[in-house]
Design a protein around this nucleic acid. Sequence first.
DNA 1: CAATACGCCCTTTTT
DNA 2: GGGCGTATTG
Length: 874
Amino acid sequence: MARRRIDLSGLNRGQRRAVETLTGPLLVLAGAGSGKTRVITYRIARLMETGTKADRILAVTFTNKAAREMQGRASKLLGKRPKAAKRPEISTFHSLCVRILRRHIHHLGYPNKFAIYDGNEQDSLARAALRDVRVGYEKLRPGELLNAISGWKSAGLTPAQAEEVADGDKEELAALAYAKYQAAIRACGAVDFDDLLLLTEQLFSEHAEVRFMEAGRFDHLLIDEYQDTNAPQYRIVKALAGAHRNLCVVGDDDQSIYGWRGADVTHILSFKEHWPDATVVRLEDNYRSRESILELANTLILHNATRHQKVLRAFRKGGEPARFIRYEDETAEALAIVTEIHAALGSESDDRALASDYAILFRTNEQPRAFELELRRAGIPYVLVGGMSFYDRKEVRDILAYLKILANPSDEVSLLRILNTPARGIGASSITALLEVAVAEGRSLGQLLPEAHQYDGVPEAAARRIRGFLGLLEDYRQRIATGSLADTLKDLIAGVDYKKEIERLYKNPGDVQTRLNIIGEVVSSIAIYEERTPNPTVEGFLEETALAGRDDIGSDDGDDRKQRAVTLMTLHSAKGLEFPRVYMVGMEEGLLPHGRSVADSAGIPEERRLCYVGITRAQDHLTLSFAKARMKWGKSRASIPSRFLFEMRGEAERAGKAAAAYAEYAETVRSEFAAREEAKAKKKKRTRRITKKARSSRPETEAPKRRKVASPETAATPGRLPVQARQPQQTDTKPLQELDPATGSRQRALGSTRTAQSPTPPEGQVPSAQSPPARPTSNVKDADLDTPAQASLLGISQSVAPTVERISLDAGLSSNTAATPTDGPDRPAKKKAPAKKKAPAKKKAPAKKKAPAKKKAPAKKKAQKSRSARSNLR
DNA sequence: CAATACGCCCTTTTT
DNA sequence: GGGCGTATTG
């Protein structure tokens, strides 16, 4: 192997040190954008250069995407190597565990061919468990139960231990249900995501020989995103690295945002204590964001007390100040932002933006709705990351359930799912009867099926069909073991006439077609798998799909589209990514510090980190927006600007006021809630009898959970762009009509969209005319954050008197130059030449032109402008 | 047994 | 506002 010196000259001091410290424990505190992945890949390359064999290196990440990226960058750095050359093992925690378990899980009494249950299947099990414990969902919802179980599992508690620890009615019930759940999943020969880690850990602690064998496979261990490790992961790492101690962990405590799911920041905070001789390297040079953006991040994160101290230094100085914008409500927010993006995409200038430059980041999954709608209307391609995944669709789950049953006959969840899907005359009553027998005799449903005819509750006809069904499965089970996977699957789908089922379910021909296409994609994905895998098996395919999660199926296709699309995603899924232009929307109390996190003290710091993550995604442009009011529970409610907006600007006092205002608000909500609970409790008594009677209800057909997609052809699934067919110019209203029955609002927005879309607007000024909300931040003043309404919420109406005028002037939307002189107070020496210039030129002039007579000259108007953005457009 | 209607409940983040 | 589950009806 030609040994070539890896060139380290492009690395800064810290990076070089991290790359060259090759033995012993090493902690790399890598701030956002500090070249973390680079360090890891260089380090791998260095290791190999100094004689470590590739396959003696294990790098662990949390996501497949990260693993893939690392793999790609490492091989690039290593240059051309013989095809057969070993590669470093780079995988996620979960897939690493799967591999280990596949080899040894039989020691723990599980079949080596165990199935992996994802959220949907867990949901089914949770419901069944709750039925078993005779708890109505109103007492404890499946989701809550799963959360509890996951919490216990992450803490390493068995059901028995959980029962001891459980405190209060709810938890005790949950602990009981946990026992049922665990028994059920085990009986299915399946494991869930948490089990993957737990069982691996158990394997290591109970079977030393397994631990030796697995740990002995590697001499060097790298863990990425170490701040996200939970307890089992931590112990697995320890077990693997304990002997050689060549453990390099990389992470950033300031980006720890998965505490809610068991990640424990203390792992990274006290690494030095666990490994006293550890070298610690800090990477604080940020190459991603402009200085103006980093300042906000640095200032914000200072509000967290417990952290490794570090300050991001901007490599890229200057930059446009971030913008802070207030809107009337979430609709206005979406409309204005989309309009702005649309204008930028359509502009003829050299610096024309690409859709892929943009990311819209939000906290909760309901927020993107408004944006999707507007983006569709504007004909801008977008990708909603993390929405309904391909694998969450009913059709896909059905088909996969067939495959799962073929692979693992004891998989009861899948069995129940397909037993009567497509409808084959095995009715709910028959199934219930069988399930009762199964429970009574302690046998599995699968075992009972062949003798179904013996039982009373099962009519002759049903028994016959069950027999037919079993025969069919047996048939395909044999075929798939020997023949081509894809072909067999195709035959299977035809054999059960799934198409007919779809036609029965959906009467709209468009719907039917998209569902059929989806099925086609499943088939082709198995074909792809089959093609590129040496020894393809059903199990292998299923494993891939289970672990792939939200990654797309036809990845090339997906990537290609993503390249031309605006990205919509949660702050959580944005971690690790970067975009030239970032919008952080819904920056409001209750949303960004999320309502549920405000209660417990650990909550706020994590929310703050989440905000920090969001800010540090932006390379050049950052816009933070919030609404004055927002729909919640079908009602419009006043919003309070997020305390983080103030914190990041160094306005601690106002941040405190925002927090206090929210606390007060939360208090009223809580009493409302309590009242409702009470009413509910009364009712429950009545309902209970009924529920009990009905408790043996039929198995789940579908575990819904995620929201449905608006319309098939515009379905926004990852990797599947909604409007790709429509050009921006088109103003075909029909699809829209279908999309949105709420015609009223449709028309309104449509009108505006049309304006925005007119291809060659007079004077070519579309952009500015269309971007009313855009405003240079040099203008950002109190005005942007306090309207009279907000000010009173914050209890500061008087004190901000000087700004009140500007407040109404701006009302969060208008872009005027009035503020220029006031630049001083807030961010004194900060304005950039470019910003200044842009403000007047770009904003004002065009706005007048294009905007219909309604808009007045910017400078003098006050209150009436608060709505200007919308009304102008209409 | 399926389709429809009504009413209740909710709203965090996900490998 | 909307999705889901349950009840009711044919």
